[in-house]
Amino acid sequence: MQRFWQAFRVGAWLGWKTESNWTNPLFYILWSLLLPMSNGLIMTMMLRVLQRTGNASGADLLPYVFIGTVVYSIVALLLDSMAWAVLEDRERMGMLKYIAITPSSMYGYLWGRGFAKVSINFLAVPLTLTFGALVLDIPIRLSTIDWPLLLVVSLLGLLIVTFAAQILAGVTLMIARHAGFVGQAVSGALYLFTGALFPITVLPNWMQVITRAVPLTYWLEGMRRALWVDAQNPVYNTGLNQLSTSNLLLILLGSAIAMAVISIPLQRRAEHRAKEKGLLDMNTAY
């Protein structure tokens, strides 16, 4: 455990240095404000167009879509972070082999890199939500947020995504080419299969089955319930409004445990396989 935290600390430090070093604080704050604002505006426009062309129930789905998309931005970042660290250290920096021969923990290091990436970009989430509440009239109010639920759901969700990211890092370790697309491909696919953009009831039945099997679907639902007081209103026909919050928490807890149980041996297996195939110090110049 000591080796894990030691490596986590170094990974987080390196991640912070390399991810935040590209600009000065003023540009960083501006970037953190402009990015979510433009995202928010794009989403609003998209939804307004959709509401003119369909939506028989007449329900305003903007809060659903807005919260889902904002929270999902963290999923995409974290999911890709460890795989990207593997790729960058191995191919671009040529340093993965030197890290691999130290007595530190590779998992700890990768978790640290993921933590740094999320921390640096995390500011965008509350800023975008605030922007949504103030400018787009999204019904998020400090007084109505379920803070304990928000805390528990955030923690469980981040754990699930972190373990998933660890699996992707393992897959990246074993892939010689196209490794850079692993994280992006998975986060892209999950964007569809988590109900981030629209209620899962609009999907064909077979897609709904997949979506209901993805733990992140429940995370996004939990975040909506914590932030948006009206999230469980049947008028939105989200497909998950029948599920009680306690059951949703149980699903998230079970998913987090399952992901841990799956990802740790998978990562070990991937490391072993990479050593078997001589991929730890591979440089494809691709």
Binding site: A7, L14, M93, G94, M95, Y98, S104, Y109
Partner: peptide
């Protein structure tokens, strides 16, 4: 090899921490 954004000292210090 080496992390281009880090200084020489930072690069070296980082590896002592891995150990």
């Amino acid at each position: 090899s080496g992390y281009g954004l880090l200084t020489v000292r930072e690069n070296l210090w980082m590896f002592t921490q891995f150990h």
